[in-house]
């Protein structure tokens, strides 16, 4: 039996509230984190991702109390990210109810972190989140058209390339890759399908697609045209444009396996 393709609503959290932006900018309030988590859990979400989006920029750790308040209402898997840079923080987050952690900037600065977390908590606990955009000009040793990594909530380019970093992350012990296309994030125009197909063909760990879901059909198209294992979306669910159950119904109609 094939695994169900996962639908994962995402809470981008700033100052304890869920926010939503376009291309990582112009953040607007999208609701109370506990209310949203409860709603998605009841609607049949397969997992919830919580990203403390300013932790890294503010140079602070992921806010534990926000994590705990969400974990208390969830009966589905819970992934937490934002500002995680040590095994000690991972341990604290697991104690607050997280099941997995997502690392981004700190893993780029210090790739060994991935290995250390995997060693202590298991590779299935480590999601490596990658934010990248397609560059029109060459960067570092890479060509125009390659995808460059950004850190600090999409503010800072780091001169590294998507595919090579994703492969390195897998070798270091990452359990999953959560790739957000900054070009697609918040645009509601669909996912960066080609990149997810390249990633899933090149890596043997699950790929979570993020950025660009504007309709249930976009999610269906992602699964029909790439090997992505999960679709992460925020805006369409926060705004109530579509429910998770509606997405799953459309997936099942299209012959894509979904848990109902």
């Amino acid at each position: 039996m094939a695994l169900a393709k996962r639908i994962i609503p995402c809470l981008d959290v700033k100052d304890g509230r869920c926010v939503k932006g376009v291309n990582f900018q112009n953040l607007v309030d999208a609701g109370d984190i506990v209310e949203l988590a409860t709603r998605y859990s009841e609607q049949g979400a397969d997992e919830l991702v919580f990203l403390d989006i300013t932790a890294s920029y503010d140079k602070r750790e992921t806010e534990q109390s926000w994590v705990r308040s969400v974990a208390e209402v969830l009966n589905i898997p819970f992934t937490v990210g934002g500002g995680i840079s040590s095994e000690k923080q991972v341990e604290l987050l697991l104690k607050q109810g997280a099941d997995k952690v997502s690392v981004n900037s700190a893993a780029i600065r210090n790739p060994e972190l991935i290995t250390r977390i995997a060693k202590e908590f298991g590779s299935q606990c480590v999601v490596v989140a990658i934010d990248a955009k397609r560059e029109d000009k060459p960067f570092g040793t890479y060509r125009a058209g390659d995808w460059q990594l950004y850190v600090q909530g999409g503010r800072k380019p780091v001169g590294m390339e998507l595919m090579s970093w994703a492969k390195q992350a897998e070798e270091l012990g990452a359990g999953e890759i959560l790739f957000t296309s900054m070009d697609h994030d918040g645009t509601n125009n669909g996912f960066a399908i080609e990149q997810y197909d390249r990633l899933s063909n090149s890596l043997s760990i699950p790929i979570i697609a993020s950025g660009g879901a504007g309709s249930a059909q976009h999610i269906v198209e992602l699964f029909q045209n790439s090997g992505a294992d999960a679709a992460l979306a925020a805006g369409i669910f926060h705004r109530g444009e579509v429910t998770i159950a509606q997405v799953k119904q459309l997936m099942i109609n299209a012959g894509i396996y979904a848990r109902f």
Binding site: M1, L3, A4, R6, G122, Q124, S204, I205, A230
Partner: peptide, 15 residues
Amino acid sequence: PSDAGVKIPHVGWNS
């Protein structure tokens, strides 16, 4: 097994 054509870890909802 890493050569069985499935992704590892086994993550997700299975029957």
